[in-house]
Design a protein around this nucleic acid. Structure first.
Length: 155
DNA sequence: GCCAACGTTGGC
DNA sequence: GCCAACGTTGGC
């Protein structure tokens, strides 16, 4: 199957690309996604080796800061069962988990981020889901040509 | 099944 | 900090 491409959003105050770099093996599990559409991507469609754009939101510099890859495919997000977790989801049953996550591994940080403004200013990227109205998905697919364009812009 | 209320996201 | 967009919840 052809390699696919994704974008994940994170607020750098809670988890930034530098936090990923500092993580053990530069790998982390992407927990806490509580949106069904995003869940379906995590559970069903993100495959080992797929490319992931790492996006910082709600920050003075919003944009894509680097890339990583999927190293472990969808498996149950353990925080849904943990009453102490901020992501606790009482109706989830370990026998039929509701929420899933993947593991991602750091590949590289751009020397200069591709900002949201850069993306908006590039007519080739006008169809990106990221810049479409009202889009609030924290995990979303990216087309190969969009991936290539972002990488080109990061140089 | 409808829909108002509410909570969250995220750009500005 | 504001607020538009939009997903979810829960009463009916």
């Amino acid at each position: 199957m052809a390699k696919k491409y994704w974008l994940v959003k994170s607020e750098p105050e809670s988890f930034s690309i530098d936090d990923l770099i500092k993580s053990k093996n530069q790998t982390t599990y992407w927990d806490g996604v509580r949106n069904y559409q995003a869940r379906n991507f995590l559970r069903d469609e993100m495959k080992k080796g797929d490319g992931v754009l790492f996006y910082h939101s709600s920050n003075e510099t919003m944009g894509v800061f680097g890339i990583c890859e999927i190293v472990k495919e969808g498996y149950p997000d353990h925080t849904q069962f943990d009453p102490d977790s901020h992501h606790y989801f009482p109706s989830a049953d370990p026998k039929s988990p509701v929420w899933f996550m993947v593991d991602i591994k750091f590949i590289k940080k751009f020397s200069k981020p591709v900002t949201l403004q850069d993306i908006k200013d590039n007519p080739k990227l006008k169809n990106m889901r990221l810049v479409q109205r009202g889009n609030r998905l924290s995990v979303m697919p990216v087309e190969k040509n969009e991936w290539d364009e972002i990488l080109k812009m990061s140089k």
